[in-house]
Design a protein around this nucleic acid. Structure first.
Length: 424
RNA sequence: GCCGGGGUGGUGUAGCCUGGUAGCACCAGGGACUGUGGAUCCCUUAGCUCGAGUUCAAAUCUCGGUCCCGGCCCCA
């Protein structure tokens, strides 16, 4: 036998798992739809250039990229924001603003698989395209929180920061954050000592490292932001004012899971406003289940495009809720038809059609097994009624219906089937 | 890319240290049993991750690959 197993980093999902996944998917989708977001879908693969334009040439290392037979450079999408924005720019740009878009789909990255990280994974997310106001940010963050709560997730924390503010604060210190990769990483890891060290090299400013590498509760947030703005320049003040009013709104609408974390950098790639991350500590190393923020894609599309978005790590959400909240289950009744002998087959098929027409699940014994075996199979499949049609029934134009839950069996004229179904 | 732990029928495992008949349970299919409940008994299918080395002999010891798991790096 040759290699017929799954490619590394991919997964198969069995019926039980799919029931949970579909349930969670539809619950989250419906929450986001309630926030006014409408779903779109884009291709599974795109021109490689789209992703290079968004994230830089180094991302190619982590992308499934290939040439097609026309020698085009293509790539399996590693994320959904870029395709959605491409779609927006090409066809949706004249829609009334703000435009609220929702998406769900599989994405692919060539990375070393580990817990919570696969080479094929699913993302659900949204993009709010329009002017980035405090209310808009509050809406997007609330949507993420509501979605997670809806599927029964508890014990997550929402960290909110501001990449734009961070940039401006450092600019006033004479530091270009984009060029100080080590500093950005140190910030993200909250290595206060290292951050302080870099800052002191460039400036003799007060100990801002301490402020930046801590986190603050919702009630402390506005005071801390106030401290940061004190004596600051115009650019810092402008960014900070937006963040301040966002926290003002969140104070009344969000819960204690929200904290201010000024050191979030989100890779600094294309977010340039307020950013946020949500994680579930119990997941371990790959605990982040949501990342998002405000961005400007102006340079990518040569026209002004502003928005706020987030992506939810669908697979990690499934892992985080695994157990507590399960799918509603397929507890809806299944009717299992057992035809006995040639004469009964045609009648059984028509009975089956009538049951399905009534909106109920119905399966047929197709293996020619005897009644005993067949009933055993029906029980294993979760059927709650079996219907037996044999010569005896055919002679009397009746059908025998057995309720597996109470072992009671009735014989009714086959013309009374619908009446029987309604009576249940 | 780096560090560590693993891999025995479809699933879960015993055997490995101390080399010598691959055992158990579940699941699946069939029979006892051709019209009625998950029972019972019997039968069947099916396995040592791959390659090299050591050895009379390797699931077992050694090395390498591969895949899985946990962590690091990275994370659009």
């Amino acid at each position: 036998m040759t290699e017929l197993n799954r490619p590394r980093g991919t997964r198969d999902f069995g019926p039980d798992q799919m029931a949970v996944r579909r349930y969670v998917e539809s619950e989250i989708r419906s929450v986001l739809q309630d926030f006014g977001y409408n779903e779109v879908q884009t291709p599974t693969f795109e021109h490689l250039d789209l992703f290079v334009a968004k994230s830089g040439p180094q991302v190619v290392d982590q992308i499934y990229a290939f040439k097609d037979k026309g020698d085009r450079d293509l790539a399996l999408r590693p994320e959904l924001t870029a395709p959605v924005m491409r779609f927006y720019q090409a066809e949706l740009r004249n829609e009334p603003k703000p435009l609220r878009i929702l998406y769900f789909g599989n994405c692919f990255r060539y990375e070393r698989p580990q817990k919570g990280r696969y080479r094929e994974f699913w993302q659900m997310g949204l993009e709010y395209i329009g002017k980035r106001t405090a209310l808009a940010y509050a809406e997007v963050i609330s949507a993420a929180i509501s979605a997670l709560r809806k599927v029964g997730l508890r014990g997550f924390s929402v960290r909110i920061g501001d990449v734009g503010l961070l940039r401006e604060v450092f600019r006033e210190l004479g530091i270009d954050l984009s060029k100080e990769r080590d500093l950005a990483i140190a910030l993200d890891k909250k290595e206060a000592g290292k951050v302080r060290q870099v800052i002191l090299q460039k400036s003799s400013s007060h100990d801002i490292a301490e402020i930046l590498t801590n986190t603050y509760s919702l009630s402390e947030a506005t005071d801390v932001i106030g401290d940061l703005l004190k004596g600051a320049g115009e650019a810092v003040e402008e960014e900070g004012a937006l963040l301040m009013s966002l926290f003002d709104i969140l104070k009344s609408s969000a819960g204690e899971e929200v904290i201010f974390d000024p050191s979030i950098t989100r890779g600094l790639d294309y977010y340039d406003g307020i950013v946020f991350e949500i994680d579930v500590p119990s997941l371990g190393a790959e605990k982040q289940i949501c990342g998002g923020g405000g961005y400007s894609m102006t340079s990518m599309f040569n026209s002004e495009v502003n928005g706020i978005g987030f992506g939810l790590g669908f697979d990690r959400i499934i892992m985080a809720i695994d157990g507590p909240e399960r799918a509603g289950g397929d507890g809806v009744g299944i009717y299992y038809l057992i035809p006995m002998g040639e004469r009964a087959v045609r009648e059984s098929i028509s009975i089956m059609d009538r049951i399905r027409d009534s909106g109920r699940k119905c399966i047929l014994e197709t293996q020619g097994r005897n009644v005993k075996k067949a009933i055993g199979y029906g029980i294993n499949c979760g059927a709650d009624h079996v219907i037996i049609i044999g010569d005896a029934e055919m002679d009397e134009k009746k059908i025998s219906i057995k309720d597996l839950t109470n072992r009671e069996q009735v014989s009714i004229p086959s013309s009374d089937l619908e009446k029987y179904l309604e009576g249940i």
